[in-house]
């Protein structure tokens, strides 16, 4: 039960931007256990978002080994990676999470389109996810008709729609006001506590990090200190 959900060994990632080469992750070693809520913190440029993208299979490491949910990501082809992602990962971004021309429930249904479920089943699952985040009465609304906090909760509903093992959140409260941010964090804590989802949340906000069980610090592309909270805040 305490298997490593994420295991990184000697992970290196460089970017070339405007002729300059930047080493973002420099031989990172990291392990994250299943069922825990992790906050990933570090100064700007420390590689937090990069690491998140690598774990989610949105990008590939240049060097090193990365096992996520039992799969060595480097061994998967592009198509296999996409399929793996659909089944195992749910993403939540800081902004522009939802497709504007689709309604809330249609947005939540998106990952379900990649599963073998039929139409009725998809709708059922999506509505259930929306119910979990408390927005089933907003199912038919378009993103423009929702507040920032509501949009983010719909995004979370989408992230859990296929019941993935892992939720990856990149600054999910960054664009939200205090109250909405609290609601979103409450939700994440619930998902981790009740549904046993492994959550990796990148954040700047120490207040948000407080709600996680473990806080991982990155510095200059390498692992810094790891804090453990005694009990997850409720």
């Amino acid at each position: 039960m305490n298997d490593a959900m994420i295991r990184a060994r000697g992970v290196k990632k460089t970017y070339t931007r405007a002729g300059e080469t930047l080493t973002v992750l420099d031989g990172l070693d990291l392990e994250m256990e299943e069922g825990h809520f992790y906050a990933l913190m570090g100064p700007s440029g420390s590689g937090k978002t990069t690491l998140l993208n690598l774990v989610g299979g949105l990008d590939a490491a240049d060097e090193g080994e990365l096992l996520v949910a039992g799969e060595s990501l480097a061994d998967l082809s592009g198509g296999e990676l996409a399929a793996w992602r659909a089944a195992n990962v749910g993403f939540v971004f800081q902004a522009f999470n939802l497709i504007p021309v689709l309604s809330a429930v249609e947005n939540v249904e998106l990952p379900l389109l990649l599963s073998p479920l039929n139409r009725a089943q998809r709708r059922e699952h999506a509505m259930y996810a929306l119910k979990l985040v408390g927005l089933e009465d907003r199912a038919k609304h378009r993103p423009q008709q929702l507040s920032g906090g509501q949009e983010q909760r719909v995004a979370i509903a989408r992230a859990i729609a296929t019941d993935p093992k892992l939720i990856l959140a990149d600054e999910p409260t960054g664009d939200l006001d205090r109250k909405s941010a609290e609601q979103v964090l409450d939700l994440l804590v619930r998902l981790n506590g009740e549904l046993k989802k492994t959550i990796l949340m990148v954040t700047h906000d120490p207040h948000a990090a407080e709600r996680a069980q473990r806080v991982v610090h990155l510095d200059k592309g390498q692992l810094g200190r790891v804090e453990t909270r005694a009990a997850a805040a409720t």
């Binding site: 996409a82 992602r85 993403f91 971004f93 522009f96 497709i99």
Partner: peptide, 14 residues
């Protein structure tokens, strides 16, 4: 482009 990013992150293929 963001919408495409969302679709890709959800698992749709190129």
């Amino acid at each position: 482009t963001h919408e495409i990013g969302i679709l890709l992150s959800v698992g749709f293929r190129p």
